[in-house]
């Protein structure tokens, strides 16, 4: 059972992180939406950010995407400290965001959507070049899209998610943020999108995945960052943690999960036996609720 202490940098060498947040704070009036958030993303790593409603996940995404500006804290991107003031800044750095509602134009075709806002050729669109590049992206993601010349309205939810992710890859980003990529998708389509996330990891992208779905998180994520009421409430390596433990951290059933796990590790180190830490009985309801 390994875990990283939430407030400290992750144990891997700090120069490797493609993106690293320290002490990010954001308030809306009297409400502190985020206070002292730390987050690290390595290249080729999928970091799941989980948390209850109002935990600050969306605010965190918006800070990274440049929609909101953090009040304090530092953002380090590829070893440089940066400020992300506008969505254009984020795109420029190489942070691409795929929002939950995908933001696709249903009346436009796949190619047209992929290149929306960044078409090749201002007064004379280069349709051929755009279509060729679109096929490259589709193949790169091994996406199941029969033709790129049909309106997005004709695609399934999973295919639309694919288009949205493919579009985020156009700018050759280093970090891709997926906001609830599997919400509202069926079983097969969810699997399709999870495959996609793994392919992003294989190609060396850092992926931040916001999710409510424990199964999805456990299926693809390498690490899970739990937010609770705008604060870090634990960072777990997925292969060593149970859903119940994550949910306990989400709901606050174990209020000070960090110290509790540290204690558990210490005791395990002491007597060499595996230890279950999480307050399992208290979270049964929460499991049903969160994995619904």
């Amino acid at each position: 059972m390994t875990m990283t202490d939430a407030p400290a940098p992750s144990p891997t060498s700090s120069t490797r992180e493609v993106l690293s947040l320290r002490g990010i704070t954001k308030s809306f009036g009297a409400v502190a939406a985020l206070s002292g958030i730390d987050l690290d993303v390595l290249p080729g790593e999928v970091v799941a950010v989980v948390g209850d409603n109002g935990a600050g996940k969306s605010t965190l995404v918006k800070v990274l995407a440049g929609v909101h500006r953090a009040d304090s804290g530092t953002i380090t991107f590829e070893g440089r400290e940066v400020t992300i003031a506008t969505p254009a800044d984020a795109q420029h750095l190489g942070i691409a965001t795929v929002y939950q509602d995908l933001a696709l134009c249903e009346n436009l075709t796949v190619v047209e959507n992929l290149f929306l806002g960044q078409e090749k050729g201002r007064m004379r669109l280069d349709e051929v070049a755009m279509e060729v590049r679109a096929w490259e992206l589709v193949r790169q993601l091994s996406a199941k899209i029969p033709t790129v010349r049909i309106p997005v309205a004709a695609l399934s939810g999973g295919q639309r998610q694919t288009v949205a992710i493919a579009r985020s890859l156009l700018g050759d980003p280093k970090v891709i943020i997926l906001d609830e990529p599997t919400a509202a998708l069926g079983v097969a389509q969810t699997a399709e999108v999870l495959n996609l996330v793994e392919r992003l990891r294989e190609s060396g992208h850092g992926v931040i995945m916001i999710s409510h779905n424990m199964e999805d998180v456990r299926a693809v994520a390498d690490r899970v960052v739990v937010l609770r009421l705008g604060r870090n409430n634990g960072v777990f390596a997925v292969k060593d943690v149970t859903s119940e433990e994550i949910i306990a951290a989400i709901t606050g059933a174990t209020d000070n999960v960090v110290t509790k796990r540290s204690a558990a590790r210490a005791s395990r180190a002491a007597d060499g036996a595996p230890v279950e830490v999480a307050a399992a009985p208290a979270t049964t309801d929460a499991v049903g609720g969160a994995t619904r």
């Binding site: 436009l108 047209e112 806002g117």
Partner: peptide, 18 residues
Amino acid sequence: RSVFAVGGNVEAARRAGI
């Protein structure tokens, strides 16, 4: 292209930087 995008989904067009 932007005209069609705005007519289809304003929010998407805005986020695409149009």
